[in-house]
Design a protein around this nucleic acid. Structure first.
Lengths: 200, 200
DNA sequence: GCCTCCACCTGAGCC
DNA sequence: TGGCTCAGGTGGAGG
């Protein structure tokens, strides 16, 4: 199998420090496979990463047996960040939703990397079937959001069936700083922000 | 099994037109089993109908095997309204809530029948183990709701974490008829309705 | 009792 | 339009 280098028990050595001096040093060529901007669900309590089908079938093909098997397979990734960790994920196909998912082991990655919605995980491969995983923060994670970006974020995080129109009348003035309270979230508005008419 | 007449795959023929001319014509005697006034949850996004335990155990008993099995069983109902549809529902026991529920297939019924909170679904059985389902609107379903009743209805149907204040400014005047749009729902207001200050 | 994991399920949105 | 994808859910088992 080209994708999974080893199938091992979960309990032993979840992470191993790899010595840099082994075969295949740091200068190796790595092929970028794909990346995904993770959704709130990908980093939330569902403890799973949905792998977009196009990439899953191209880079992590499951044989017919593994596709129908509930066990799926195990994918081992080296940490591209250089820490040397090895991440072992269970990878399988959910026939009910017809989607490919990384499940067991994923929540640990999310926690250890402090992965948040909007961050990007990227997948590469090197020689000898070695797989690498990396992640990076989204650019605006700690800066204040523009009202439009905040609206997009709220739109992404609110329940899908909600439809709400907010207009200038909802804007609250306090202490010279304009604040829009939406679903319990106080949004600071820049002073130069014009009148809002957000259609979420 | 007395309850389920057939267990079939979901993918094939979710609804079938039944010929009226088969065995057991329209004049057959049907025994009324029970009915339920459906709650907001029964017609909401939970996609399930809670079957009152007393009726469930009397009319739709699950054997010990099916009770513990996650699969439950499948109940097939003919449409008592005469349309000839067959409704297939997954029926199972949720041990966590110790309740009997109809899950898969229910949301389709809710949608197709435009079932709303307060409506009544009734269950009957005929000869040969045939099951029938029917529903009827609650008496006031088509009349306009008072703002207070509308607020209560919205409060019951919105997600519990939502906190929204709506005031008169949200009221839209159009064609002489006042309309309050809340979460995508247009509420017709009576002409004599005073200024609104609903705290949901 | 909580957390993880598993096998389902559905609606929205996109093509 | 219909089909497909996938984000966001569920209950239950097990540690």
């Amino acid at each position: 199998m080209a994708v999974s280098t080893a199938i091992v028990g979960w309990e032993s050595s979840r992470r191993e420090k790899l010595q840099g001096g082994g075969h295949g040093g740091g200068g190796e060529r790595r092929e970028h496979m794909f990346e995904k901007v993770v959704t709130p669900s990908d980093v939330g309590k569902l403890n799973r990463l949905v792998v977009p089908k196009q990439y899953a079938e191209k880079y992590f093909p499951l044989g017919a047996a593994a596709r129908s098997s509930p066990a799926g397979t195990v994918l081992c990734f080296e940490d591209a960040g250089g820490g040397g960790e090895t991440w072992r994920f269970r990878y399988s196909y959910w026939s009910s939703s017809q989607s490919y998912v990384i499940t067991k082991g994923w929540s640990r990655f999310v926690r250890d990397k402090r992965l948040a919605a909007g961050d990007t995980v990227s997948f590469c491969r090197g020689s000898g079937g070695r797989l690498f995983i990396d992640c990076r923060r989204r650019a605006d994670s700690s800066t204040s959001l523009s009202p439009v970006a905040a609206a997009a974020l709220i739109k992404a995080q609110r329940p899908p069936s909600m439809s709400v129109v907010v207009d200038e009348k909802e804007v609250v003035h306090g202490g010279g700083r304009r604040c829009l309270r939406l679903f319990g979230v106080d949004l600071q508005l820049r002073a130069e922000t014009p009148a809002l008419d957000l259609q979420l």
